[in-house]
Amino acid sequence: MIKITFDVAQGRIHSFTLSGHADFAKKGSDIVCAGVSAVTFGAVNAIESLTDVIPEIKQSGQGGYLNCVIPEDISESSREKVQLLLDGMLVSLQTIEHDYGKYMKIILRQ
């Protein structure tokens, strides 16, 4: 199962961690894994490309691990842009979870 934990404070996502594998289908055919990967990596790439923010990223191919932390020392304008992108990512992941909740779980940690 893929677990995605969002650290949220004051209504803002400060970081997220993704780990595990969906095991929906064999490697290379797993649409849940592909969807989650596309949404999360797309959001990280969008943050880097569309804002002046470079998140702190830790990644491992083993265990499907990705940790993304948004720096605290960014402008309010950048923070708003980053938050919008992260909110969009969360909505997309919740859409996947709605149909494939047996294979992934989203945790909002306040």
Rank of each mutant, 00 (worst) to 15 (best):
1 M>K: 02
4 I>H: 04
5 T>H: 04
6 F>A: 01
7 D>Q: 12
12 R>Q: 15
13 I>H: 02
17 T>W: 00
17 T>M: 08
18 L>K: 12
20 G>K: 04
23 D>V: 03
25 A>H: 10
25 A>E: 13
28 G>D: 10
29 S>C: 12
29 S>D: 15
30 D>F: 02
30 D>G: 03
31 I>E: 03
32 V>G: 00
36 V>M: 04
37 S>V: 13
37 S>K: 05
38 A>P: 00
39 V>H: 07
39 V>T: 12
42 G>D: 02
46 A>Y: 02
49 S>W: 04
56 E>M: 08
57 I>L: 15
60 S>Y: 08
63 G>S: 05
63 G>R: 03
65 Y>H: 14
65 Y>K: 15
69 V>G: 01
69 V>R: 15
75 S>H: 11
81 K>N: 09
82 V>G: 07
83 Q>V: 12
85 L>V: 15
85 L>P: 03
86 L>G: 05
87 D>F: 10
89 M>S: 08
91 V>M: 13
91 V>S: 02
92 S>V: 09
96 I>M: 08
97 E>A: 11
99 D>I: 12
99 D>F: 12
100 Y>W: 05
100 Y>R: 03
100 Y>P: 04
100 Y>G: 03
106 I>V: 13
107 I>A: 08
107 I>L: 10
108 L>M: 14
110 Q>F: 11
110 Q>C: 08
